[in-house]
């Protein structure tokens, strides 16, 4: 693997690092809010991927100049960047915000009911609930699996 290859794909390396960072946070953190933060980083990494692939080296913003009649005048010499990924990511950002806010809203409700937002504590409470159910209704296999 040459340095050139590495530098040429630098946006992908950054994407992978960012994505795995986010993913790792989701998996490893016990705090529910931190999980959401991790999820955000994870999603943002994907946004970055999309935005970076829209960039054309030496390209400019895809704004087409118009002449006095209002007709679009395109100069074939000028290289434009691809705007479509940016537009897509606008949608994805909206989705991401919706997900985040819903996640946080759920956390508030969880906090109201469980009095904690730490996964370990919640698992403990749920294990106690499952144990109580098992005692009452006979044991079940599988648990939360």
């Amino acid at each position: 693997m040459t340095l050139e290859f590495f530098l040429g794909h630098v946006n992908y390396w950054l994407f992978i690092v960012l994505m795995m960072t986010g993913f790792y946070i989701v998996v490893s953190r016990g705090n529910y809010v931190k999980k959401i933060v991790g999820l955000n980083i994870f999603q943002v990494a994907v946004f970055m991927l999309y935005i970076s692939i829209g960039k054309v080296t030496g390209g400019t913003a895809p704004i087409f100049p118009t002449n006095s009649q209002g007709k679009i005048k395109i100069d074939p010499e000028i290289v434009y960047s691809n705007p479509l990924p940016h537009v897509l990511i606008l949608t994805a950002i909206v989705v991401g915000i919706a997900t985040t806010s819903l996640g946080l809203a759920l956390i508030i409700r969880i906090r109201e009911e469980y009095d904690t937002i730490e996964e370990d504590d919640i698992l403990e409470i749920e294990a106690a609930m499952a144990q109580a159910e098992n005692d009452e209704h006979g044991s079940a296999m599988g648990g939360r699996a």
Partner: peptide
């Protein structure tokens, strides 16, 4: 609530994979 939260985390990871 925790079921919905778990589903949200996993569902979002799934959807993000899909977008990738």
């Amino acid at each position: 609530l925790t079921a919905a939260y778990d589903y949200l985390i996993m569902g979002t990871i799934g959807a993000t994979f899909f977008v990738i």
